[in-house]
């Protein structure tokens, strides 16, 4: 299933899910750097309130059948470079065993207190991975049984992987 066919099926169902265009090298980029590169999958931008319904659609749709969630991660676009508006982007990388094709869905949330509905009912692997995204970026997942910190200890201050995170150096010299 080529990305275009997949996109047409999705477009038929959901209007406001747009495809993320191929990244253009910014005008100021030096020539030797070469053209920006992106994997040849389909990249979709999905609004956060539509995500749970879209996830069920991706899984149960007959000729898409994305039954394997490869990974969940998030990116924090805090530093202002002209192309990227300030946001936190949660990335879902899905794979289908039946058709052997994959898709990437990106959801952007505002940085203050990002909230997203959890897809633990659709793919159980998101249980721990969403907890890790919460632990590192502070994205609250509704519908998650215990959306608590998984890697850091409970009382850890702040969200470590955010760009504006200030680390208090732990002292063990003396």
């Amino acid at each position: 299933m080529t990305p275009q066919e997949m996109f047409s099926i999705i477009q038929a169902q959901y209007k406001n899910i747009t495809e993320i265009p191929y990244p253009q090298s910014p005008h100021a980029a030096p020539a030797h750097e070469g053209k920006p590169y992106r994997d040849p999958h389909l990249y979709l931008q999905c609004p956060s309130e539509l995500w749970l319904e879209f996830a069920n659609f991706l899984k149960n749709e007959e000729n898409l059948s994305f039954d394997y969630l490869t990974f969940v991660t998030a990116l924090d676009y805090a530093k202002v470079n002209p192309q990227e508006p300030i946001r936190i982007e949660v990335v879902y990388h899905l794979y289908s065993f039946k058709h052997r094709h994959s898709i990437v869905v990106k959801i952007s949330l505002q940085r203050e207190n990002p909230v997203l509905s959890s897809v633990i009912q659709v793919w159980k692997t998101s249980d721990w991975q969403e907890r890790e995204v919460y632990d590192m970026f502070g994205v609250k997942f509704e519908g998650h049984p215990n959306c608590s910190r998984i890697l850091m200890w409970e009382g850890f201050p702040g969200w470590p992987l955010r760009k504006d995170y200030v680390h208090i150096p732990d002292r063990y010299d003396d």
């Binding site: 990244p23 980029a29 750097e33 053209k35 590169y37 992106r38 994997d39 490869t70 990974f71």
Partner: peptide
């Protein structure tokens, strides 16, 4: 090494399973 802007997901069959790296570079 200064890779161009962009994002990539590479995965291999490590002894314990599918080990993948999702790499986003800003140039």
């Amino acid at each position: 090494i200064r890779p161009p802007m962009g994002e990539v997901y590479a995965q291999i069959e490590a002894p314990r399973g599918m080990l993948g790296i999702y790499l986003v570079s800003d140039g």
